[in-house]
Simulated assay, not measured.
Amino acid sequence: MSETPSVCHKCNEVIENRIITALGKNWHPEHFACKDCQRPIKEATFNIQSGEPVCSECFVSNYSGTCFGCKLPILERTIKAMDQSWHEECFVCAGPCKKPLVGTSFYERDGKPYCRIDFEQMFAARCFGCTKVITENAIVALNGKWHRECFKCKKCQTPITESTFAVEDQKPLCAACSG
């Protein structure tokens, strides 16, 4: 009982001697070639486009994106974020922490990604009372933003909830302390 002869995927002729098996197909070694430049692929690794082999050189020039972070070609996994392509290791917080952002939520400012903590520390509004970051609703008064709990009378420290109040040294005063 003889085996069915192997047929080359490119030329459809029987392969007698050396054989390359790749992409679920058999090839004469000289026919296992880049679909773009037609040169035989001799490297152990190659790329695939539309089910056909592509040499590394053609892949870089014809198919790979350029990393927005490091400006080098992307030959492996591509991260798409902010309408750009990134190497996985290049998609990191632009703030001081430089933490990886792959698989996490992030904030964008001026075309750069930031983790929540760095973004808030660098760009969020700060309370006029305590100077800490305001991440939720704020009271806007006296040319600034305030945490609700920080907008209190300068003298008695009672939170000011009325829409009218007095001002002393750019600090609010409740009706009782101002009268």
Rank of each mutant, 00 (worst) to 15 (best):
S105L: 06
S105R: 03
F106Y: 08
F106H: 01
R109N: 08
R109H: 08
R109P: 01
R109W: 00
D110G: 07
G111H: 00
G111D: 01
P113F: 00
P113A: 05
Y114Q: 01
Y114E: 03
I117R: 08
D118W: 02
D118M: 00
F119K: 03
F119R: 05
E120K: 00
E120D: 02
E120R: 00
Q121T: 06
M122Y: 04
M122W: 01
F123M: 02
A124I: 00
A125F: 04
A125I: 01
A125H: 04
R126I: 07
R126K: 14
C127P: 01
C127M: 04
F128G: 02
G129V: 08
C130I: 07
C130Q: 01
K132E: 12
K132I: 05
V133W: 11
V133N: 02
V133G: 01
T135L: 03
T135Q: 00
T135R: 00
T135W: 02
E136C: 02
A138D: 07
I139P: 06
I139E: 10
V140D: 12
V140P: 03
V140G: 13
L142C: 04
N143V: 05
N143A: 15
N143F: 06
G144H: 10
K145I: 10
R148G: 06
R148M: 13
E149C: 10
F151V: 09
F151P: 07
F151I: 08
F151D: 12
F151C: 11
K152W: 09
K152L: 12
K152E: 13
K152H: 13
K152N: 12
K152C: 15
C153L: 11
C153W: 11
K155M: 10
K155P: 01
C156V: 08
Q157C: 12
Q157M: 14
Q157F: 14
T158G: 09
P159F: 13
I160V: 12
I160T: 07
I160D: 10
T161Q: 15
T161V: 15
T161G: 15
E162F: 09
E162D: 14
E162Y: 06
E162S: 14
E162W: 07
S163K: 12
T164F: 11
T164C: 03
T164Y: 11
T164N: 09
F165T: 08
F165E: 08
A166S: 11
A166R: 05
E168T: 08
E168G: 06
D169H: 07
D169T: 07
D169F: 05
D169P: 03
D169K: 06
Q170L: 13
Q170V: 08
K171G: 06
K171S: 12
K171R: 12
P172S: 04
P172W: 09
L173D: 05
L173G: 03
C174N: 03
C174V: 02
C174Y: 05
